[in-house]
């Protein structure tokens, strides 16, 4: 049975196994390799996507439950050729190192900017509990988020 997903505004069909993790469909079928399957158990956040607007680890989402949903991946968060508010702030803050965690960070933080416009430093830390970064030690990511929150 073919599944029907809406990914970054495009309607796509997939014949994947219903229990296949969404992250594998995005990467292997659609070649949207932004989401990274780093831990495959919901701890690291590197495969985060927005499903119907909600940040969701795509490693824990089976294809069957993504069927019919609006999925936004990191590739679809900004106008082509541009950066969205959090991407621009992370770039300006020189926050990026190896970059593997950033697709997930960007998805989580893009959501945070609208869901918690008054977030404090501690709120941002708590919000990132499920987004692990091995390179940066987080502080610059938090600084950039505060910068983005202050930039309307």
């Amino acid at each position: 049975m073919a599944l029907s997903l809406t990914v970054n505004g495009d309607r796509v069909a997939s014949t994947a196994d219903p229990a296949a993790p969404l992250v594998d469909i995005l990467r292997e079928e659609l070649h949207l390799t932004g989401a990274k399957p780093v831990c495959r158990e919901g701890f690291c956040g590197a495969c985060m996507v927005l499903i119907d607007g909600k940040p969701t680890p795509s490693c824990l989402t089976p294809a069957a439950l993504a069927d019919g949903c609006e999925i936004q991946t990191v590739e679809g968060l900004a106008t082509p050729g541009q950066l969205n508010r959090i991407q621009a702030a992370l770039d300006a803050s020189d926050a990026v190192q190896c970059g593997m965690c950033f697709p997930g960070m960007v998805v989580s933080l893009t959501h945070l900017l609208t869901a918690s416009p008054d977030a404090t430093r501690e709120d941002i830390r708590a919000a990132l509990t499920g987004n692990i970064c091995r390179c940066t030690g987080y502080e610059r990511i938090i600084d950039a988020t505060l910068l983005a929150l202050a930039t309307k």
Binding site: T56, P57, L60, T129
Partner: peptide
């Protein structure tokens, strides 16, 4: 429990 995205699932 867990982390925000997991709590939402």
């Amino acid at each position: 429990s867990a982390n925000p995205a997991i709590r939402a699932m």
